[in-house]
Design a protein around this nucleic acid. Sequence first.
DNA 1: GTCTATACTCTGATAGAC
DNA 2: GTCTATCAGAGTATAGAC
Lengths: 207, 207
Amino acid sequence: MPDPHRTRGSYAKGIAKREEILERALEVVAREGMRGASVRELADAVGLSQAGLLHYFDSKEELFTEILRKRDEIDATERLGGGEGDVREGLRRVVRHNSEVPGVVALFSRLSVDAADPQHPAHAFFLERGEGLRGSFAASFRRRQEAGEISDAVDAETLARLLQAAADGLQLQWMLAPTFDMADTLDALFIALAGPLTRPAEDTREP
Amino acid sequence: MPDPHRTRGSYAKGIAKREEILERALEVVAREGMRGASVRELADAVGLSQAGLLHYFDSKEELFTEILRKRDEIDATERLGGGEGDVREGLRRVVRHNSEVPGVVALFSRLSVDAADPQHPAHAFFLERGEGLRGSFAASFRRRQEAGEISDAVDAETLARLLQAAADGLQLQWMLAPTFDMADTLDALFIALAGPLTRPAEDTREP
DNA sequence: GTCTATACTCTGATAGAC
DNA sequence: GTCTATCAGAGTATAGAC
């Protein structure tokens, strides 16, 4: 390591700056939404020129992918972290927060579509993200099924897929017309799945 | 009506040609997918020049909106029509067909996102489409609830919203990785909602 | 009604100075 | 590391001939 100060220093500074850019970009997207999701506008918003911003990212697509990755990172630490709540509670917190950042929801939805192309930089990201998400959803459902809280007529993996689908689909509906509560609506799926089993009180007071 | 032959004739021809264009465009999108969803490429595919194609539509966005409208029209007559099947069966047929036209799924998903903008030509279309869809879903759920087939812990309108969301969300997952059966997975939601109530046979052979 | 040709805009990406 | 300047490409929309 020749001159660790310069090499490690500049490297560290590059990384730090990059992270800082992503955090600011995420805030800007959250506030201003997706209008003009061009590198130029985002660069202005974060206080850099277009070329200056692209200095840190290979392309526009990679930039936006990294913004979403940063979002997930923050969600994981600030809303899923702690480990005290279960999946249902954590998901509810994330969705409720999403209701306050429509621009981020728009960015996520747009990239969800674009990333279908295997060539897109976000393809692998969405693939891994989905698998991870469904994995933890499935584990949670499996636990509930074993506890007898929900029916095992449908396997936990499929329920997990449906839960993820519902969450994503609700976002599309909500962007089109934010006239309902995303968190409550998604939570209703848990209620519906638990079905009659969560209401033993009714059965006990039967003649 | 001065010279009905010319006015009505040209009008009728214009309409007919437009419909023909939409049908062909739908076939092309279904087959070739969304690669290069530009007016030029679509024009080539339907055998017109770019300007020639735009002669029938105000803009690219309106063109794509109309393609989706035509899709719905065909779905309604060919897969929902007849009235013999219930909503669940009809939806299953539509989703199964969608699995064979990934390009159409991609177009729908893309426009679902773009149409969030109230200025987008497809905005009203998606708004009305969603309301109609959820209306018939809700009616079906209400019937099932009254018949005691599914729990009424969640109101039918919310279930309808969740069903629509699941359908749309599954499409996103499936475009990213078509490694599962969309129709079966969506149908599993009905199974999960019916829950234990659909399995009286198990209870009878208990003691 | 359809085509050719073109104008215009937007945007991502790069080169090179500082 | 950041900026200015510029390029190249794509794509929509329109004008005008036929």
